[in-house]
Design a protein around this nucleic acid. Structure first.
Length: 272
DNA sequence: AGTGCGACCCGAACGC
DNA sequence: TGCGTTCGGGTCGCAC
């Protein structure tokens, strides 16, 4: 399940591989994945080239001449680079073939990922991009900002951390890890958090996301980056997917509960 | 406006 | 063994 660190890893990896290569052909095998007009999608991309790859939250933004290709990997989306002669696999849904005979293949077992081609001038007006909250590293991500946003939320803080309009890019793994590092019980209502707790979330978010990006993300389930680089952050996980294992700080058993339908892991002693 | 929930998917895990 | 059922998870859209 790619979150911000995984998306950043994919971005950095792909940037070394696909920029400024002419796109010879686009093959769409699962049309529902494309949110924009299908004919435009093919005609605009063919003959075009990727000039840069940016990121906003969990969205990857491929820059083309005059357009951006927005992609969201959701849970299982992956990009692979392959020789175009290799046979297509079952879950390779969108294939971009470059004129050096390599493919950029979008692979997604669950078919949850989406792609959207937009004109450059429309980027900031695109709903998905417009509503993204502060990036984990932004200087605008402050305790004051969080306190104000949280004050309107009676939901558990765990649920609120997943709200992309507040902090952009956190998913289930890092939400669990941030709350452990900040020593906050995931069930606590967001509106009840103190200034100090908001500050702890800012610091924990900075620290964890920086570390996760440095380590190439976290490999959970099927996630691998485009070059097959394995994320190493899983070795650093303190609570996520560690149900019944001892807390690395106090030895108490890590608990797994559902909050808002999402698996939540925490230490009942460290996060009272 | 905030909240809750089904829909989108399909492989893995589980039940019988 | 083999079949059917349940579950998960990010985001959107809709109902309240």
């Amino acid at each position: 399940m790619p979150e911000i660190a995984e998306v950043e890893t994919v971005r950095n990896t792909l940037k070394k591989q696909i920029l400024n290569k002419k796109i010879k052909k686009v093959n769409i095998r699962y049309a529902k994945m494309i949110e924009s007009d299908l004919k435009d999608f093919v005609s605009i991309l063919e003959g075009n080239e990727f000039l840069d790859i940016k990121r906003r939250g969990k969205w990857l933004i491929f820059e083309l001449h005059d357009h951006y290709l927005l992609t969201h990997l959701r849970m299982e989306g992956k990009f692979y680079l392959k020789n175009e002669e290799l046979s297509l696999e079952k879950h390779e849904h969108i294939i971009f073939t470059f004129d050096d005979n390599t493919d950029l293949r979008y692979h997604d077992t669950r078919k949850f990922g989406r792609m959207n081609l937009i004109k450059k001038e429309d980027l900031e007006n695109t709903e998905a991009i417009k509503k993204q909250g502060e990036e984990p590293f932004s200087k605008n991500l402050t305790a004051i900002y969080l306190k104000e946003k949280f004050s309107k939320k009676k939901l558990p803080i765990k649920t609120v951390l997943l709200d992309q309009t507040i902090i952009s890019g956190l998913g289930n793994i890092y939400a669990n890890e941030v709350l452990f590092a900040a020593k906050i019980n995931p069930l606590k209502k967001a509106c009840d958090l103190s200034n100090q707790e908001c500050q702890n979330i800012v610091l924990a978010t900075n620290e964890i996301i920086e570390s996760a990006i440095k380590m190439g993300g976290t490999t959970i389930k099927s996630y691998t980056s485009s070059l097959g680089v394995t994320g190493r952050f899983q070795q650093k996980l303190m609570v996520h997917k560690r149900e019944n294992e001892p807390c690395k700080v106090c030895n108490e058993k890590i608990v797994n509960i559902k909050i808002g339908g999402r698996s939540t892991y925490y230490c009942p002693f460290c996060q009272k």
